[in-house]
Design a protein around this nucleic acid. Sequence first.
DNA 1: CTGTTGTTTCAGAAATGATTGAAAACAACA
DNA 2: TGTTGTTTTCAATCATTTCTGAAACAACAG
Lengths: 214, 214
Amino acid sequence: MGRDSSRQSGARTGGEEGADTPETLRLAQDQFIACWGKMGSAWGISRTMAEVHALLFITGEPLCTDDIMERLQISRGNASMSIRALLDWGVVARAHRRGDRKEYFTAEQDVWAMFRAVVRERMKREADPTLASLYEIRDLTASVEDATRRTKRAKQPPVDSAEADLMARVGEHNKRLDDMLKFFETVQSLTERFVSPSGRGLQIAATILGKAAS
Amino acid sequence: MGRDSSRQSGARTGGEEGADTPETLRLAQDQFIACWGKMGSAWGISRTMAEVHALLFITGEPLCTDDIMERLQISRGNASMSIRALLDWGVVARAHRRGDRKEYFTAEQDVWAMFRAVVRERMKREADPTLASLYEIRDLTASVEDATRRTKRAKQPPVDSAEADLMARVGEHNKRLDDMLKFFETVQSLTERFVSPSGRGLQIAATILGKAAS
DNA sequence: CTGTTGTTTCAGAAATGATTGAAAACAACA
DNA sequence: TGTTGTTTTCAATCATTTCTGAAACAACAG
């Protein structure tokens, strides 16, 4: 709805449907770009950055900054920033044309490689710092617990019930942190193995798991 | 730095370190909450919602709306919204105390269960709609390609080279979409199996993969 | 029924994040 | 070294999201 599909009458390209092909292709690309942009922003990636990536991916050919600006209707600054970020993420590469000073850009075409790059980058940026913080936080109360243990060994009866309660809380707190830490460690070591820059381990893992689950 | 750790002189609780324990515990909780909030917002979850969850998780005991407002210094409306969202996500549950009309809330304490709930919910909200859109987009150009094939079979020579080029583009476009689609399908079926509401499949999978990788 | 306690909603305020555009920096070349 | 075309940067602006606070609502006790 909202689009009159019987209006077109461009060059018929050998098919027998109503819309002409170049326009349909363009429409499909636009929808893909929109879809990708929406998904990106849901996952904390700027919509434009996702759209630029979508454009490069779906057209599959090298585009220059101006092409991107024009097609996405964004400013030069925005385009430049987004491209730079995509390069940093490793999902887009520079390309050059002979006799042209402009830089062109292409998106990684292997979907699994793309996925690996994204996960790798996000792990590096978010999971690793989080893990580091968790360790620090754990250190804050680790010593308290140690002290308690030492005290307990020395003289059996807890000094008073309020204090015993507090120690119990600290113990539980530490247990929760440890669980969390263990979880992150597991996830991290898994991704390090299977989302590693070189291999295509994840894809293999997916296949194995797909079979194992039946 | 930034915190004078030799200032405290509260009830010594059996340890021999400088800070008193209740304060240290509180500090550790606050840092955990901040850390969790930061990570949440990086992944497209509102910071407050993540913080509320962190608070419930790290204290481990049922808290009411006022407790949360007070501890996190947020408004009643915000607290209410965040709690509601966490309930929807299934990572927080209602609890009641006898003879108390207030509602209390507790966080899922099993980190893996928590993780499953989050992934499940996000899949439902983002991956599923994306997949649906991708199918629609694929349908746009699928018919074009079909038509081309039929034409080709009927009369061998392409009408002109521009048209042949266009058809090649459509073919590549469809290939890219199919790859994408295939990828999403794989991911979806994997998560359906291993992040399913009931089982703790992911954890098992993690163990298997951890071993398989060595 | 009415007062009390607790929860939800929602219009606007505040905060945060994205985008622009123009100037500065840069790179290639003559 | 100057010229030209291209990319990057960044303060100002704009858009979006999040948060607040007060009012509406719901559940219950007396």
